[in-house]
């Protein structure tokens, strides 16, 4: 696994996220490298999902959420004035924790993204659907039954359908928010193998609770931790910070911060 810096796909610079003016994540600086898998790990409430969602502006959908700092994509700040979040999400796709296929047929699920872009031609759509489902290694299981509802598939198949749906619009970057946490071990393995395949074409960022998974699949790992402060009135204020960011081998074998080491050894979680 290479540790030399390739081209960065996305550069998080001093990113702070607030919910209703309460600081949720403080000062995150992470370069995300092209055609690599970057994993976000850390205890519950450390803000790793929040940071992930700030990359494709999904936080915009939460009332009261606000992002400060810069998320650079091709040297352009995604939070700049003339950036349309719709375009951001078309370039930076997302796969969610719980498989969430639309209550439509398998075909319509995958064709949804291209149709949003205005593609109506049946043959073009057929090609995109076949290529995307093959890309998600789901084709052999569903090719005879594309009219079947996406909800009729098993959990692992549903998640691969969601990945097929995401790659159908050919994004540059795929964000995955604990994509295997709702799946059984066999389905998890299939997703992990799929990620290793996908990373040849796409840049992947994955949030995971599972340190073994981060070790198995990722090239770079960012460890997030929690800071606490006592507020006036005895209330505790908590926010997430970036604890350590390094190539995965290095972070797990030779963590620099003592907190990272304790987390990796499973002393808290």
């Amino acid at each position: 696994m290479t540790t030399t810096n390739g081209a960065t796909a996305i550069d998080l610079k001093s990113v702070k996220v607030f919910y209703n003016d309460k600081l949720a994540v403080d000062d995150v600086n992470i370069p995300i490298y092209h055609n690599k898998i970057t994993a976000f790990i850390g205890p519950s409430g450390c803000g790793k999902s929040t940071v992930l969602r700030s990359i494709n502006r999904m936080n915009d959908l939460i009332p009261g959420a606000r992002v400060e700092g810069q998320v650079l994509y091709h040297n352009k700040n995604l939070y700049g004035d003339n950036v349309d979040p719709v375009e951001v999400r078309r370039r930076i796709g997302m796969v969610f924790q719980k498989p969430n296929p639309f209550p439509k047929s398998i075909y319509d699920n995958v064709a949804y993204g291209p149709r949003l872009l205005g593609i109506r031609d049946r043959r073009t759509l057929d090609e995109i659907v076949e290529r995307s489902i093959k890309g998600a290694y789901l084709w052999d299981e569903v090719k005879d039954d594309l009219k079947k509802s996406g909800l009729a598939l098993s959990g692992g198949q549903q998640q691969r359908l969601c990945i097929a749906r995401t790659i159908a619009v050919e994004p540059d970057v795929i964000l995955m928010d604990e994509p295997a946490s709702a799946l059984d071990p066999i389905a998890t393995q299939a997703i992990e193998e799929l990620m290793r395949e996908l990373v040849k074409q796409y840049t992947i960022v994955i949030v995971t609770h599972n340190m073994q998974q981060a070790q198995r699949v990722s090239d770079y790992t960012a460890f997030f931790s929690i800071r606490k402060a006592e507020e006036t009135g005895g209330q505790e204020r908590r926010w997430g910070v970036l604890g350590e960011y390094a190539p995965t081998d290095q972070l797990f074998s030779n963590p620099k911060a003592e907190e990272t080491e304790r987390y990796i050894r499973g002393e808290f979680g």
Partner: peptide
């Protein structure tokens, strides 16, 4: 979320 995530308006 799924719809927005795919770049829907």
């Amino acid at each position: 979320e799924a719809s927005f995530g795919l770049g829907a308006t």
